[in-house]
Nucleic acid binder design. Structure first.
Length: 204
DNA sequence: CGACCGATCGTCT
DNA sequence: GACGATCGGTCGA
């Protein structure tokens, strides 16, 4: 039920509750415009709650060249290279220097699918095109170079077309791949659209 | 379906 | 030197 696309403004990202932002990002549309438009609806997110969260890259205030972008302005972009080959896309929230981020883990593709196929080298669309944080970044052309950039720009942004998932359409689980975060691995910080085939399937 | 494995490399110890 | 906020493939039940 797409209406007019409205780009999210700074106020959406500049909030103190990163968990709430992660939940509300479900249903929003991530858009990249590098010559051609590619976009997808967000169907899976994870919150990373800063210095008190062992799973966060900013745990105990850790601050290096690599993770500097998580300390940026609300609405900034943090890209993280994982396993030497996957570029993971994060949304920076809360005030500058408060390192709260939301990892986008899956999209339902909307616009520019033929471009996504070119970027990923896939012959035809399948659910793996934008399922999983590494795959969706490749499909939308996002990489490390975009770290530190802003979602208030015209190249990369998140938009609202009015779609809202109801409470009973959303499932909350533990985060994926953070077993080493000990007790913080138990936090229920992952939000998924129930039954959506693009959601990364692994145990919670 | 679940368990496991190799690829691959920038970053930090 | 070791280690990932992953992925796609294989193998066995």
């Amino acid at each position: 039920m797409p209406g007019t696309l409205k780009k999210l403004g700074e106020a959406f990202y500049d909030r103190s509750d990163v968990i709430k932002v992660a939940r509300e990002l479900l249903g929003k549309i991530l858009v990249t415009h590098f010559g051609v438009y590619t976009s997808g609806r967000i169907v899976e997110t994870e919150a990373y709650a800063g210095i008190g969260d062992r799973a966060s890259h900013a745990f105990r205030g850790r601050r290096t060249n690599r993770n500097e972008a998580v300390y940026g302005e609300p609405g900034d972009i943090y890209m993280y290279i994982c396993y030497g080959m996957h570029h993971l896309f994060n949304v920076v929230t809360n005030k500058k220097d408060i390192p709260h981020v939301v990892l986008i883990r899956a999209l339902e593709p909307l616009e520019g699918i033929s471009t996504m196929l070119k970027r990923t080298g896939k012959p035809e669309p399948d659910y793996s095109l934008t399922r999983g944080p590494g795959n969706l970044s490749r499909a939308l052309g996002l990489n490390k170079r975009h770290s530190g950039g802003s979602l208030l720009s015209d190249e990369i942004y998140i938009a609202d077309d009015g779609l809202k998932y109801k409470k009973d359409e959303i499932l909350v689980t533990k985060r994926i791949g953070v077993e080493s975060a000990r007790e913080d691995a138990e936090r229920l910080y992952r939000f998924i659209v129930k039954g959506n085939p693009y959601v990364s399937s692994r145990k919670s």
